[in-house]
Measured scan of single mutants.
Amino acid sequence: MAAGGDHGSPDSYRSPLASRYASPEMCFVFSDRYKFRTWRQLWLWLAEAEQTLGLPITDEQIQEMKSNLENIDFKMAAEEEKRLRHDVMAHVHTFGHCCPKAAGIIHLGATSCYVGDNTDLIILRNALDLLLPKLARVISRLADFAKERASLPTLGFTHFQPAQLTTVGKRCCLWIQDLCMDLQNLKRVRDDLRFRGVKGTTGTQASFLQLFEGDDHKVEQLDKMVTEKAGFKRAFIITGQTYTRKVDIEVLSVLASLGASVHKICTDIRLLANLKEMEEPFEKQQIGSSAMPYKRNPMRSERCCSLARHLMTLVMDPLQTASVQWFERTLDDSANRRICLAEAFLTADTILNTLQNISEGLVVYPKVIERRIRQELPFMATENIIMAMVKAGGSRQDCHEKIRVLSQQAASVVKQEGGDNDLIERIQVDAYFSPIHSQLDHLLDPSSFTGRASQQVQRFLEEEVYPLLKPYESVMKVKAELCL
């Protein structure tokens, strides 16, 4: 049975990233139509530049190519590739079939990587351009969430054990800070992308030097003109047959890092959902379990974690691919890159769409948070109580021993009897502590235990987050809708 299948058929496997999760716009960027249309555009740009620099290419040939950029006979191309065992030459023939007058000058002087690699770089750039505003929107939604809850005390956790208090907004800023680093890295790697350009079979530009009869300047002009037509500021000066596969490492490393950030955020949300302090959106008709109707599973956060793990592992592909590119190139890269580049971007696209949807509907339960604080705060307040007693004339050592005994009794009630923490009640009825009984409410005010959390939130948002989001103001209103 021949390899390949009808990918629109229910009898043929289709990647869930495309069929179930990723956005239509990201799927289109990695589609065959987008790819092969870009090949034709690159052939047109090459012909236009070659004509401008004096090669015998007519206006009629150029116009014929322009008129057929979208006229792609995919069936013919597939048949040609089956016959020739070469995808680029299959599309040269297919393009030439609908451009008979231009057929002889299509791909003039070029090698397969002229269309293959340059198209990949265009796709990487455009895919990054799709991700950047999506990530900015996630940051914006979380920034709104953090600002609104900047002063809401909550129990902090280290080692997932109760620690000092923080605020809900401050905790959210930990998430935002990681995503801001990801946004900066995505922008950097996007701006650092260079075009492969017009380089020939081993990167020496020998074929173009021959076409222009040894004119170095025209060869350099050709490279520059096509690079500018493709919208790049610069091209690699040095290439082998391909652009260095280190570029793929750079791009997928940034995406993998984004995956790590999203995994951490969504894990926190899942843990908070278990504590009943916070939940992701839950639709009115949504079913959490087929057997347990009360369940409210954090399905979206779980999906993000599941896909983020996949995204983090994909960076190993370009690392290994770059390491086995012998001399000017081997074909070890080809099949692998067809999979890992598309999957990385479709996965990143999915987790950003999902995280935006989550961040637009996060639900906080202040009463649950308050109750958990009441359970733990008495123990945390013991040092403040000791200091207040010393100020009232008591002995630190005597007070410490009193607190120690009462704390152990209260802990026994919590752990052995399943009761509430009654340390404060014990202190309130103990005559030894009568000098500070009137101060206990103040000493137990949760806001006095959150330090500068709310001020940190305000400063972080104003100095770091809002300036970073400013270039994306025009796209901030787009909502994230999930079908599944």
Rank of each mutant, 00 (worst) to 15 (best):
P162T: 04
L128P: 03
Q397T: 06
L174W: 15
V247F: 03
S448M: 14
I62K: 06
K101F: 07
T267S: 14
F345M: 11
V363T: 05
M292T: 04
N421R: 07
V457S: 05
K367V: 02
V88N: 04
G4N: 15
L352V: 09
L319I: 13
E360I: 05
L121I: 08
A291D: 01
G8M: 15
S23G: 08
L55G: 02
S15E: 10
R14V: 11
W43G: 01
T350G: 09
A110T: 09
Y34G: 08
L377C: 03
L121V: 14
R404K: 12
T267F: 08
V457Y: 00
E277S: 05
L211N: 13
R188Q: 08
M312C: 11
Q184W: 09
V390A: 09
K276H: 02
L307T: 15
I424R: 14
A2T: 14
L443R: 03
F433R: 03
F36A: 15
R372T: 05
W175M: 05
R137I: 15
Q164I: 10
R141M: 15
T52N: 10
C99R: 01
L272Y: 10
A146S: 10
N71E: 12
S253I: 10
V457P: 03
K276L: 08
K82M: 13
L179R: 03
G203K: 08
Q51T: 05
A77K: 05
K101C: 14
S334R: 05
M89E: 01
L461P: 02
Q51V: 04
V92A: 13
A410G: 05
L183W: 07
C399P: 03
L131T: 12
Y21K: 02
F232Q: 03
Q375H: 07
R303N: 01
M312T: 08
S140G: 13
I373F: 03
I287L: 06
D192A: 15
L186T: 11
F74N: 12
K82T: 12
M65S: 00
K82R: 11
M316Y: 04
T354E: 03
D398H: 09
K218P: 11
L346K: 06
R303D: 05
A291E: 02
T242V: 09
R171L: 01
R329H: 08
V465A: 10
P293D: 01
A146W: 06
C113L: 06
T242W: 00
L130Y: 14
S438C: 13
F232L: 12
L461G: 02
G116M: 04
S31Y: 02
V198H: 03
M26S: 02
I249Y: 08
S67I: 11
Q184C: 12
H217V: 13
H91C: 09
R329D: 01
A2K: 15
P435N: 09
F212W: 10
L484D: 07
